[in-house]
Design a binder for these strands. Structure first.
Length: 938
DNA sequence: GAGCACTGC
């Protein structure tokens, strides 16, 4: 069924799809591309010529410095030049060779458009390099004038150089505004010179490291020349202020008009017919194409929400039953079908739903709604539903065939979240026995082919976006200290480039604070010589009021620079960004399945990520992206894509969920990229040990109850065990507090002592879990006060989140039929419950003064922030192992070893754990799992 | 005596 319409290869289909008008359009687009590229090449040449002229006059200076005594700096500089020169030659050779190879190998072969463009670009690059080379043979040319951070004596020479430059410019008849502007800028730079790089006195910073090579230009297609949607709306609203048209009507009409300006609008007919013809369609839509908001509306207008009468006979027996139950027995009361659209993030689901409701002129939560954790804003009448991907996954539990949906759109599929990856396998499966179900997978450019392959060669439909071109600059040589380099680049942009905000990507809070300080210090020294520069940090744990500041516009004549973590890569968009600085790193969580240890490590980003970052500069106007790594590094050292989450995360929860959906063979599940065998094995092993799976690897009753909770299986088990010890209320609190990742205690840098004292005041005997309980209960006693949090160095946001989680868990308790009982004094019962879920995470004090984990015999320490830090309990249970400066157990409680036997008799030997304590051997069934996994993965 | 990328259910 699914196969027949999609037999033609994707590219063919694409061509068939395009009508003659589209052909025209692609032609004009191509022409525009070529023109743009030519103009670009011309600009480059002109600039090079220009600079060659300028530098030509500077020659005597370099001779002069030749004669002077050679300093170490000078020697370094020279050796660097030699290196750069030889490196460049090598690169040019490589490029030449590559092109020659391509000529030879692909002669007469018809290449795809992309390949052709690739070759074309390489040719242009080569030509430019040659031209530049020729220019350099005349002179030792620095391609850009950049602040150099040289010491006073050399800067004098520099000034001489510059002065010559100006006389030269004047001689060429250059004058007027541009000239003055440049002169002014350069003066600013020169007065600034002694201060640049003054923080680090090492020679490195004194080198001309601020040279950028304009290596390539990413061609973001600028399809339409009309103004952006927002601008359009504003204009409309302003112009109609004095009209007497009905407010709502007017608003609706403007919305309708602005919908038509979206790039996707032109493709509507083709798109709809493609959806009619094919069950699965991959939609390759660039940002700004309008797909997320328009697609659902088009589908609705095409009647995809109408109850399908044919389906009634074929597969929808269940629904028939529902209808028969209706008292009137009306046939036509059959529920309308829904169009579902998943998003990876909550905010996106909410805001897009709100926008669509507005465009359709309905109240949000009725015909158009959204569903995210903690908030279901949809109703019986809802026909267009936006939701987070995890939410749809949960819906499978109640409706395994998703019968109430006629269309499913998986948006932002290229982000490859754990949940979308699982969804892929599931929706592909239900599409097989629900031929009427339409499946739309929407993704960014690069991965479309891969998605197509996964969905049995589903056709790809391409929709252009609306974006501005972004110039990409690379450094000539790798930067050792990217924070410093980023700071220097910020200042450089600030003094040399026209107004427009700067976005810097750093890896974490620490780097952001460091960069912030460096920038403050250096701008302070520059004083009023430079324009105003507002520095704004942003990362997820930053208090909300500070976060909001990044959206305030820069002061007139000034500029803002935003120092951000990865949060600015996808999660939030900031308007007005013209410049992006990308050092090329991010923090990633790594999990070592061998010893259960987690660590956050700084790793290079992927190409996809780098391009995403660059794209952030081209949202409102043409932009520039400065990459603090070399073009070679981009080409050869960065992976194409980031490793999908499914391959680097604990799968306990997912395995449990899939098991409860009746998917028994998880090894042969249809993964787009299968998870590592070791991770699956570990998940099975843990679930077996927790009693969620039996010896036949089937889901047990306990496992079914555990699956109800959106938690790690160990936490779910803890909750279920609290029934036995009659302390479910306390356990719910503890589990909720644990699930907001240790961001409860606030520790500002300038008040560490006060904060630590405040934290220690919460300590209670038993350990950290009980301490967390104490914190929550005290907060509750103040009626969840913000002020109390502030006074006690507690993060209100985290507490609020814990409260939300707790509320949700409490309602889920009804489903598993556990009464909520409170027994606050019985910390033994509380700790035994935790033991029942976390017996895997036991560590015993050993002779060497450290703890050893029972499972892996890993040497670990109690975290210094723990309530048990200066105590030495013989047995402890930990919540997690982290590798930071040392191997630490985080969130620890003291236990008695008898409790292990009591709470996990199948896991621990019945004898008392002693010096030679050993974990019971895993039964053979796990050996079987392992063998099966290995067979399937070989 | 330490140190916290980002999501999501």
């Amino acid at each position: 069924m699914a196969a027949s319409p999609s037999q033609s290869p994707p590219s063919d289909h694409q061509q068939n799809q395009s009508s003659s008008s589209d052909d025209d359009e692609t032609n004009t687009r191509r022409d525009a591309d070529i023109r743009a590229r030519d103009a670009f090449a011309k600009r480059l040449r002109e600039r090079d010529d220009d600079q060659t002229k300028k530098k030509f006059k500077a020659e005597p200076v370099s001779h002069e410095s030749d004669r002077s005594k050679l300093s170490v700096e000078e020697l370094r500089k020279r050796s660097r030049h030699v290196y750069l020169k030889s490196r460049k030659e090598k690169k040019i050779d490589e490029l030449e060779q590559e092109l020659a190879d391509e000529d030879y190998l692909f002669k007469g072969v018809k290449l795809t458009k992309r390949e052709e463009e690739d070759i074309k670009l390489k040719r242009i690059a080569l030509n430019l390099a040659r031209e530049h080379d020729q220019a350099q043979q005349m002179e030792n040319v620095d391609r850009y004038h950049m602040p150099t951070g040289k010491s006073d004596e050399t800067s004098k020479n520099d000034r001489y150089r510059e002065d010559n430059r100006y006389s030269d410019a004047k001689a060429n008849g250059q004058s007027g505004q541009n000239f003055e502007q440049r002169k002014w800028e350069d003066e600013v730079i020169h007065t600034a010179l002694p201060h640049f790089g003054s923080l680090d006195k090492d020679a490195k910073s004194k080198q001309p490291k601020y040279d950028y090579i304009l290596d390539e230009e990413i061609q973001f297609v600028q399809q339409l020349t009309i103004p952006g949607v927002n601008e359009f709306l504003q204009q409309k609203e302003k112009s109609k202020l004095h009209e007497h048209e009905d407010e709502n009507k007017r608003k609706y009409r403007t919305l309708l008009e602005s919908r038509k300006t979206l790039p996707i609008y032109k493709f509507r007919e083709d798109l709809m017919s493609a959806i009619r013809d094919h069950q699965v369609l991959i939609i390759e839509g660039e940002t700004g194409s309008g797909k997320t908001t328009q697609l659902t509306q088009y589908l609705f207008e095409e009647g995809y929400c109408e109850a399908d009468t044919e389906d009634e006979d074929e597969v929808e027996d269940g629904d028939d039953d529902d209808n028969i139950k209706l008292p009137d027995g009306k046939k036509k009361t059959k529920k309308k079908m829904m169009i579902g659209c998943t998003q990876p993030r909550r905010v996106a689901a909410m805001s897009v739903a709100a926008r669509v409701a507005e465009e359709m002129n309905v109240k949000l939560g009725r015909e158009v709604g959204y569903s995210i954790r903690f908030e279901d804003c949809s109703s019986e009448r809802t026909i267009i539903k936006y939701m987070t991907d995890g939410m749809l996954l949960r819906e499978f539990l109640g409706e395994p065939d998703l019968a109430s949906y006629s269309v499913l759109i998986v948006d932002e599929a290229h982000e490859r979240t754990l949940h979308t990856d699982i969804l892929f396998g599931l929706v592909k499966d239900i599409a097989r026995f629900r031929p009427k179900l339409k499946l739309l997978i929407s993704s960014a450019t690069l991965d479309a082919e891969k998605f197509s392959q996964f969905f049995d060669d589903a056709p790809i439909f391409r929709i252009p976006g609306r974006r501005f071109p972004v110039d990409i600059y690379y450094t000539k040589a790798p930067e050792a200290d990217y924070v410093d380099a980023a700071v220097v680049t910020v200042l450089q942009i600030h003094v040399t480039q026209p107004l427009g905000d700067i976005l810097v990507f750093l890896t974490g809070q620490e780097e952001i604070e460091l960069a912030n300080e460096m920038l403050l210090e250096r701008t302070r020294k520059l004083g009023t010589k430079i324009k105003e520069l507002i520095i704004l940090p942003i990362y997820s744990t930053l208090p909300s009021d500070m976060q909001i500041r990044i959206f305030e516009p820069a002061p007139p004549g000034g500029r803002k620079v935003i120092l951000a973590t990865n949060i600015a890569e996808t999660s939030l968009t900031i308007d007005g960004i013209h410049f992006v600085i990308d050092p090329g790193f991010c923090k990633q969580k790594t999990y070592n399945a061998r010893n259960g240890m987690e660590a956050l490590t700084i790793t290079p980003i992927s190409k996809a990520s780098a391009n995403q970052r660059a794209g952030r500069a081209g949202r409102v106007a043409p932009g520039k992206c400065f990459r603090l790594y070399t073009s070679w590094a981009y080409q050869h050292e960065l992976d194409d894509n980031s490793i999908p989450e499914i391959q680097r995360t604990n799968l306990g929860n997912v395995v449990l969920l899939l098991k409860s959906l009746g998917i028994n063979d998880l090894v042969n599940f249809d993964y787009m990229d299968p998870p590592p065998m070791e991770t699956l094995r570990l998940a099975f092993e843990q679930l077996y040990a927790l009693g969620a799976l039996n010896h036949k690897v089937e889901l047990t009753k306990l496992g079914r109850r555990m699956a109800e909770f959106p938690l790690d299986p160990m936490l779910s088990k803890t909750i279920l065990a609290s029934e036995t010890y009659k302390c479910s209320a306390e356990i719910l609190t503890i589990v909720s507090m644990l699930s907001v990742n240790n961001s409860i205690f606030f520790r500002p840098k300038d008040k560490t002592l006060l904060a630590d004292t405040a934290r220690q005041a919460f300590f209670v005997p038993g350990g950290d879990h009980i301490t967390l309980l104490n914190v929550y209960n005290q907060w509750k006693d103040t009626n969840f006060s913000t002020q109390w949090c502030y006074e006690n160095f507690i993060q209100f946001r985290s507490m609020n989140r814990a409260r939300q989680v707790r509320d949700q868990l409490e309602t889920l308790m009804e489903r598993v039929e556990i009464e909520i009982l409170s027994n606050p004094a019985d910390t033994i019962g509380i700790r035994k419950s935790i033991c029942a879920g976390f017996f895997y995470h036991t560590a015993k004090f050993s002779k060497n003064g450290m703890y050893k984990t029972i499972r892996h015999q890993q040497s670990v320490l109690i975290h210094p922030n723990s309530a048990l830090f200066d105590q030495i309990p013989r047995y402890v249970i930990y919540f997690e192992l982290v590798l930071t400066t040392k191997e630490y157990m985080r969130q620890v409680i003291e236990i008695e070893n008898e409790w292990l036997r009591e709470t996990a008799p199948h896991f621990y030997k019945t004898k008392k754990l002693d010096d030679d304590d050993k974990v019971k051997k895993m039964p053979k069934v796990l050996g079987k799992i392992k063998a099966e996994l290995e067979r399937n993965y070989s």
